[in-house]
Design a binder for these strands. Structure first.
Lengths: 162, 162
DNA sequence: TATTGTTATACTCTATAACTATA
DNA sequence: TATAGTTATAGAGTATAACAATA
């Protein structure tokens, strides 16, 4: 039954090294690393800055002028409905505009404004600095390996049957 | 001003390869990879299965009998308050019990039940299978490298001044 | 004063479903 | 019948703040 534990036993437990099954699981370590990035990203961008998600959307719009919301949602793997408020916000900030497309009146192409492009360039620099900060403990090779492995994980997935 | 785009231009855009700044950012790739794991984890555990979080808590309790809620929250990097409902749930499932500690009446040590240990072993096997599935595109070396890099990212952080 | 467990609360994120207008 | 954009809504996840009991 062992209903209770002595104080010293608990202290031993607390001192145990962190080497359980959890540490061997990729998912767990992935989540912890992701949380690190998330937190620092938000601190970097400030209270009324872009979120990781809206930054990624803006990035897509800047780099692929004329992309539609549906395209963005597919590229980022998120729901179309979630994009509306985000694009509203980016438009309100003056970073982009919704532009009608002659050939298809259902669609509105997304076009970054000059100000939006400039703001994006500044933010991208900040984001790279933020990543350098969080990745400080890895050398250049390790960083590249990490990105490569993460991308491999994802891109290869699309091709599979599943 | 270029108010609108022709259909064919948009199609070109849609066909563009996915090689923008986003793909070079660790944070973005980390998030996408994390989403992959999360989704598959939940599918693996089923509708009334443990969440990634409660599984990690149970793992800690099984491997460090007598650990307290505060210890768990510190190990996992989450708030104490968030643990209460989780531990309630694990207790309701019969996986663990709250056990009074003689030396300190504020504390309740967490003790996995025999059933809880058995259930954990089964779940851990399922989780490992789930990880093997999601990691199918990486070979053994790559998987180990990935875990190592993710852990290095995190563990080294603690030691820093910040 | 500090810590453990707890409650209440609010906020963010995000998906689902349904609607409309077009195609 | 399918797609783009939209709206409304609900649910999960999680943090914050406060409190009681104990140290």
């Amino acid at each position: 039954m062992s209903g209770s534990l002595a104080r010293s036993d608990r202290d031993d437990v607390a001192r145990a090294r962190t080497d359980g099954a959890l540490e061997t699981l990729v998912g767990y370590n992935l989540k912890r690393a992701y949380m690190l990035f998330q937190t620092d990203f938000r601190e970097t961008m400030g209270d009324d800055g872009l979120t990781p998600r809206s930054f990624s959307a803006l990035s897509l719009v800047v780099e692929r002028p004329g992309i539609t919301q549906s395209d963005v949602s597919r590229c980022l793997g998120i729901e179309r409905s979630g994009l509306v408020a985000m694009i509203d916000d980016l438009e309100r900030r003056g970073h982009l505009r919704r532009v009608p497309v002659p050939g298809d009146r259902r669609v509105q192409a997304l076009q970054a404004t000059p100000d939006g492009c400039a703001a994006y360039d500044r933010m991208l620099a900040e984001v790279r600095a933020h990543e350098a900060r969080v990745l400080a403990t890895l050398d250049a090779d390790e960083r590249e390996t990490l990105v490569t492995l993460l991308r491999k994980l994802r891109t290869a997935r699309k091709d599979q049957g599943e």
